[in-house]
Each structure stands twice: as structure tokens, then as C-alpha cells.
Design a protein around this nucleic acid. Structure first.
Ligand SMILES: [Mn+2]
Ligand SMILES: [Mn+2]
Ligand SMILES: [Zn+2]
Ligand SMILES: [Zn+2]
Lengths: 144, 144
DNA sequence: CATAGAATTGAAAACGGTTTTCAGTATGAG
DNA sequence: CTCATACTGAAAACCGTTTTCAATTCTATG
């Protein structure tokens, strides 16, 4: 059992949620995924372990995990309904346009840019998204 | 009549589309907006000029304008169905979280970051999104 | 371990934004 | 002006998501 699965289940419990088979199945799928999954994809995969699972429970569990900042929604040109484990703290995503595999990175240094843009526009800047798109190593070879 | 309205209408015509009242109404609203507008918002505003307008035509016109790269879809935490005029070339958005007003900026220098992340992950980086969120001058005062 | 009450479940219905269908209309080339 | 056809709006269909609800499952407590 992945450490992340255990830790998510403990988090749910610590926030007063009960541990049920439906939640366990959803958590196991999402917490161990290396790619962004839509609710329907989560449903189809999780049902292999727990066939009685309902799609509604996938939505409800994703909403909880989202409120606890354990998952985040990923936006792409071709859809904005995929979810991914959130790492600790602020980080950015690099997404494979072909297979949806995701890598995390940080180390952007945009403070100077924010200051300049804030000054020029009069905006108070509160947050930002920086997301890269491309092809992962496997898909790069598959395509060429 | 705004230069951008004229230019969009010419673009549509140049690509073989007919100029109709419905299209004119939609183009006039979207091309002159300083804020990202949802199809329904476009519909409601455009109907003040052309009451016979159907919501379907808003969708159809937005799709054309999008294919011609004259508008772009804007993604936000609370929804991804708003459209905005696209400026020439690559640029980034700064969006007011309260009123959706948008400013454009460029001058990001992220090439070094892309090179480093590409190297570390093995990805071929093809594009990126950089979007800032905050409060515009007017909303900053209204909130405080 | 047994109980009881509340949280949770999945099925079905409802919802809301978007797309398709279709018969009538307006556009623009000739 | 005429005519073929691109385009229209209304209505229906569609599809992902949310709500409703009666039945079931947890878990705190004895
Ligand atoms: Mn950052
Ligand atoms: Mn850029
Ligand atoms: Zn989005
Ligand atoms: Zn504002």
C-alpha cells in the first residue's frame, strides 16, 4: 500500500470522514496515478477493485480530496476535468499532450515580473498559474 | 466602429463566411470587450442590438473566431467558458478575480527555466501558459 | 459484541452548458 | 434580380455533473 494512499485515508479520517470501500477505491486510484484522470476514468479503474462503486461517489470523493488540497484539477486546451495528486506547497505542472503524464517542477523566479506587471497595470497580483505542455520521453519516441 | 470590429468582420469574409446581422452583433460585443465573457453573457449583451439573435449563433461565431485565432478561451478556477480577444502573437493574461477584467502582458523570460525542466524530465516542451490572477485597480478599492 | 443514529451509498432524476437537427430565411455571386 | 446555398433560431438531444432519496454501512457508545 502506497504511503500516499495511507496518508490520504488518514487525512480523510482526521477530518471526520468515514472510511468506506468506495472512498478507499477512489483514493487508491488517484493517489497512485502518474497522470491526470477524469472522474469517469477514475470510476472505470476503481471499479476493477470495487465493482459496486457508483460514479457519484467518485465525484464526492474528488471534491473532498480537493477541499483538503490533496488533489488539484488540471486545465488543458482539450478539457479541464482531470485530477492529479497535489504535492506539498506551490508547484507547477509539465503535462504530456499525448498521454497526460505529469511532472512537477518548481524554481520559477517570477517575482520581478509580477512586480513590474503589477506596477504597470495597477493590479494587486494574488496568484499565478504556470503550466508547460509537451511530449514526455516515451511519447516523443512514439510520435517520431 | 472599432478598428478591431472591422478587421474581424473582414477576416470572416476573407475566409468565405457571410456577413450576417447575428455575426455582426456577436463580433461587436466580443471585439470591444475588456473582460472575458461567457457565451451567455455575449448573448445577453448582443441581443440589446439585435434582439432576434439566438444563443446558438453565439456559439457558432465564437467557434469561428476561435479557429481564426481572433478570440481565446480563458481558464479560471471557477470556470473555463469565457472568451477574450486575442492580441497578435504570444502574450499572457492578468485577470481580475472579481470583475474578470483582463490585461495583457508579455516579457516573460522563461527560456532558461524551460531548458532546465526539459533536461531534467526528458520532455520536449512545446508550449506554456502563464496566467496571473488578482484584483484590478477598481476592484481593489471596492473590496477594501 | 450489540445497538442506534448519523454518515454514506448508488440509482435515478434533474440540471446547465453545449451541440445537433431541421425547416425556413437571408446572403451574395452571377 | 434570381437562385443556390450558407446561415438562422427553435427545439431536441447530448453529456458531464449535481441533487434527491430510500436503503445500507460506519462507528461511537454501552
Ligand atoms: Mn510559481
Ligand atoms: Mn510566454
Ligand atoms: Zn480550464
Ligand atoms: Zn476587477
Amino acid at each position: 500500500m502506497s504511503i500516499r494512499v495511507t496518508s490520504w485515508l488518514e487525512s480523510l479520517q482526521a477530518h471526520g470522514y468515514r472510511l468506506t470501500e468506495a472512498r478507499r477505491a477512489v483514493v487508491e486510484v488517484v493517489a497512485t496515478s502518474k497522470r491526470a484522470l477524469s472522474p469517469l476514468e477514475v470510476y472505470e479503474i476503481a471499479r476493477r477493485r470495487y465493482p459496486a462503486l457508483g460514479l457519484v461517489s467518485v465525484y464526492r470523493t474528488l471534491e473532498m480530496l480537493s477541499a483538503l488540497h490533496l488533489v488539484q484539477r488540471v486545465h488543458q486546451e482539450d478539457g479541464c476535468n482531470a485530477y492529479l495528486p497535489s504535492l506539498e506547497g506551490h508547484q507547477h505542472l509539465l503535462i504530456c499532450e499525448r498521454c497526460r503524464r505529469v511532472e512537477y517542477f518548481d524554481g520559477d523566479d517570477l517575482e520581478a515580473l509580477f512586480a513590474r506587471v503589477g506596477e504597470q497595470t495597477g493590479f494587486e497580483i494574488r496568484s499565478h498559474w504556470l503550466q508547460l505542455f509537451g511530449l514526455c520521453q516515451a511519447c516523443k519516441q512514439a510520435v517520431s
